[in-house]
Design a protein around this nucleic acid. Structure first.
Lengths: 250, 250
DNA sequence: GTAATAGTGTCTATCAGACACTATTCA
DNA sequence: TGAATAGTGTCTGATAGACACTATTAC
């Protein structure tokens, strides 16, 4: 008990440096989108430092003057890259160790983001930074990633797949208006398996997350499909997890 | 696009300070246990600094010389307080902003831990630090907490309740050997509702996480109960989430 | 008409929840 | 014997998954 925060931390009410060495603190974001009928993630080619020339998740150091909180640090980077100001952004977990960056003790807060397929055009940053969309295959991509980014990406894909199973979170990958068939196809791309139409529609409608738009769309062929849009705030909208009810009395 | 990590970060292969201000980096842990037929969390009374005299979750600054990774920082603090070397420890999420600590930009990685009720005796630290177990009521405790610890605690309770619904994680709150009735009572304390015996046993046995120990125990009254113990590693042992199967073809 | 896709109706096997029942101890 | 707790059996309502069916467009 010699090393508690209370024992070592000097009292101070100013912003002076407290005098101990801190880890490097960053955020890194797995930005997902659907392109060319595949789930893709946006990667950046590193031009300096360790892992130079390798692909990595976009991210950056937390700027204590500029960023008010962690999420704003992630959003700043995301907006600069994709132009999307308010994407679906969810914190994954934090990775920190002595070894993950060969230079020093480093910590990164991992996020994943879902960007609608209609806003896919990358900013000017694309050329400048050599940014590319890579197809998700299994829980990884076809190129090796810098640092522990393969681990972060794998966790992001797992989380997305898991979330998609009990919530209609995939609407964030679609344009503002979409058909239920498009929503289902997005689910199938994420999960990597086909779904039956009838129970899918039953579930989606039961959540109330989407609502029909009066107006129709047509495809290349077939009956026109009803367009839907995001109805409510995402919060608290879940498929009922029947497993969650496993022990719960009515 | 002037503030990317690549643009600003100087190249270096040493551990020298890169020259920009970093946030304070900490871990804080909500340590849960069951005592006196209630779910409790261990709190520490702050003796210095902001929120002096208020209760807070135990935690500490990440020591880059001493801690190999985030988890070891959390375990170090946990072991010092409770004497438990390998508890169930799970990362919650990270809280970071300009405002959460009045002194400076601060970031804390939140964890929650489950400590078996048989190892409840606090270390010498208890008196030294004024540590106490507080009963969880709803998703909080009866005293105001320092910093944003009420938020962290609330998230920890929510996560624990959620996890308990699809996994037998509560075994980590029980002693090495326990009866199914004790396991069920633990569930009921966590969830705050009563459960039916029959489906509970069906589910728990179906997971295979617990296995009977040949030997019996008796209570103050009634038929002796079979003792069980933790059978397998926690990994990948979940109740089947039937909601997860909602769209999934067999 | 056919092709193509959207959308609905319905059957069935499964199972969570309810609850009654049996089993085994102590006093 | 009764009280108390452990543990099992079984019925039922709900529903996920399967799949057939109808609807509406273009050609």
């Amino acid at each position: 008990m010699t090393d508690t925060e209370i024992g070592k931390e000097p009292f101070m009410d100013t912003y002076e440096d407290p005098g101990y060495a801190r880890p490097d603190a960053r955020v890194d974001v797995a930005i997902f989108s659907v392109r060319d009928a595949a789930l893709k993630v946006l990667l950046i080619k590193r031009r300096v430092g360790p892992f130079k020339g390798q692909w990595a998740l976009p991210g950056g150091t937390i700027h204590i003057e500029e960023d008010t909180d962690l999420e704003s640090a992630a959003k700043r980077r995301l907006k600069a890259l994709t132009g999307v100001a308010s994407p679906y952004l969810e914190q994954l977990r934090t990775y920190g160790s002595r070894d993950r960056d060969p230079r020093r003790w480093s910590l990164t807060v991992g996020y994943y983001a879902l960007v609608p397929s209609e806003t896919l055009s990358l900013q000017a940053a694309e050329e400048a930074e050599d940014a590319r969309w890579y197809t998700i295959d299994g829980d990884t991509v076809s190129v090796p990633l810098a640092f522990d980014h393969a681990q972060i990406l794998s966790n992001a894909v797992t989380r997305l797949r898991s979330k998609v199973e009990y919530s209609p979170v995939a609407v964030h990958l679609l344009p503002e208006q979409f058909t239920l068939a498009e929503l289902q196809r997005t689910y199938e791309l994420i999960l990597g398996e086909t779904l039956d139409k009838s129970p899918f529609r039953r579930q989606v409608k039961a959540t109330g997350l989407v609502e029909p738009v009066k107006g129709r769309m047509r495809q290349g062929a077939g009956r026109p499909a009803q367009l839907y849009r995001f109805a409510k705030r995402y919060d608290a909208l879940f498929f009922p997890r029947s497993l969650a009810r496993a022990h719960r009395p009515v």
